[in-house]
Nucleic acid binder design. Sequence first.
DNA 1: TGGGGTGATATTTTT
DNA 2: TATCACCCCA
Length: 670
Amino acid sequence: MPALNPRQAEAVRYIDGPLLVLAGAGSGKTRVITRKIAYLIETCGVAARQVTAVTFTNKAAREMKQRISGLLKNRDSRGLSVSTFHTLGLNIIRREHRELGYKPGFSILDAQDSADLLRELLRKERMEDEGITAGLQSQVSRWKNALVSPARALSRTEDETGAAAARLYAHYQRHLKAYNAVDFDDLILLPVQLFREHPQALERWQNRTRYLLVDEYQDTNASQYELVKQLVGVRGALTAVGDDDQSVYAWRGARPENLALLQKDFPRLKLIKLEQNYRSTGRILKCANHLIGNNPHLFEKRLWSKLGPGDPLRVLDCRSEEHEAQSVVSEILHHHVTQGAPLGDCAILYRSNHQARIFEKVLREHKIPYFLSGGTSFFAHTEIKDIMAYLRLLANPEDDAAFLRIVNVPRREIGPTTLEKLAGYASRRNTSLLLASGELGLEQILPQRTRERLAEFAAWIEDFARRGESGDPVKAVRDLIRDMDYPNWLRETSANDKTAERRLANLDELVSWLGALTKGEAQDKSLSEMVNQLTLMDILERQDEETGGDRVHLMTLHAAKGLEFPHVFLVGMEEEVLPHRTSIEEDNIEEERRLAYVGITRAQRSLALSYANQRKRYGEMAECEPSRFLQELPSQELQWSGKPTNRTREETRERGQAHLSHLRSLLGSD
DNA sequence: TGGGGTGATATTTTT
DNA sequence: TATCACCCCA
């Protein structure tokens, strides 16, 4: 086990009050968090169940758990909570749902479900023409993340469009509540509201959070910060780890200022900076420091490394995006062949997803295996969404969104007209669609055959709901899928055999995940708990990872955060690409610079930056200018290749002239 | 119910 | 250019 450096050790041992660890890229922040948790449990005698660590991604939480259990060996780490903010919120809501006015079995709507619901409401309200369709979901999300209630949102708006959006927000919240459902943002928002209104509940949670550790602190938004403050309370047993230079989620509500706010809110805050980098060579770090030096800083820090200077950074000047892809791929091949570098050591990083395409094409042409991260999520597949909707409905008979999704999938001859009438009836009776389906009052408005179909469906669902509750929930799910002949429906609705096979495999995978969840830590989980847990999980299609092997990594800069690779190719270093056009327009260059910084600091041994002079934009060929960030790098550390651009030609001319005038001045002074 | 034609639209993305 | 949602017609 590597020894901690003095600063890291100090951060691990400082438990007397609130602590902010400013951890530069590659400075071993995860090591500090994991070692600190082990220290708290082993040395300070804090009970594992009273330690809570929060991260932003499942992946980070998973890794952290693994590393801690490695450190603690056989010692008791049961009850230690390492989770994402959202899972923590879910646990709080699960325990306290009554106080919040939710019933057991409440559903979680994912981003897609919530967008669907908003679109539906928008349609009902006939507000399409008011131009608030675009960005409505993110507006609502921003409000929620800033702890702005619908009423406050409405009172704050100035124009009619904003008011319409705020009304929709109110409407949306009412529907969620009626569905006994929450969305992702609610998982943070509701606990905050609960703790504001119920001091006893807050005390309960404070008592079980004797120590709180927060990773990637710069990514917290206002509601997450509020939750942190509430849980920490006056005790101030908090370690926050973050790096303002790696804040790249401002567009999602993250507030890097939260780092500075800590100092205000916790006057006793201790600050420790981790500046020794264990990842990159000196030249790479020098360039990174140089670039980020152009940003204003909340806290000054300067990364250094003992790893030696390393090679100069290469800049690839390319004619077109095609040429760029070919240049990068041939460099990778070169590394691979001449230095025996594994393909898996190479990563191609880009600003936006569409840039991956051309690289995929060229890699395929060269028969080079690659791993593209950030594809469609497992849970975005129709078949998975369908079954999840069934599960939600089993657990929560009030989940109208789930009901509407699957009532006619597979076909049960329950069409839009029927549903509209049913919805009218249900809302008059103040009940849910599923519960209304079996009611006698429908006699007045629906023909007998239709009523029978509805009642049959409702009875069928209720039957399986009972089976899921009393018996083996996984078996109930299997039976449900078989009983409605869903696999055949999938085959019928798939374009070809191949997609059908894939979808069936996905279905199997979902069921086996359910099985795995029942075997997990807590044995007897209810169906709804399993469903909610699944909704927060990130099962991506990882055939690539499973088939394993040595593959080039392709990913966005956002996805690369937290990772490292021996050889990094930072591509598309152009104005309007990185910095992205909209960021230029919105005068948001600093965040783009941080993105470039994140990209550079992913590299361990070698880094190449590339740009194209021409690129297809919305179908049309457009001239491109090298990114301003290239000029912000120290030119003596860069090695340009390819044909020199106008810029470099100009530079050489300038340099030549400077040299001449220098000579002249020498002559003149003589 | 499904398929084809049409017009708008075009970041980053986790939970 | 490429995709996607939407609408109309068979």
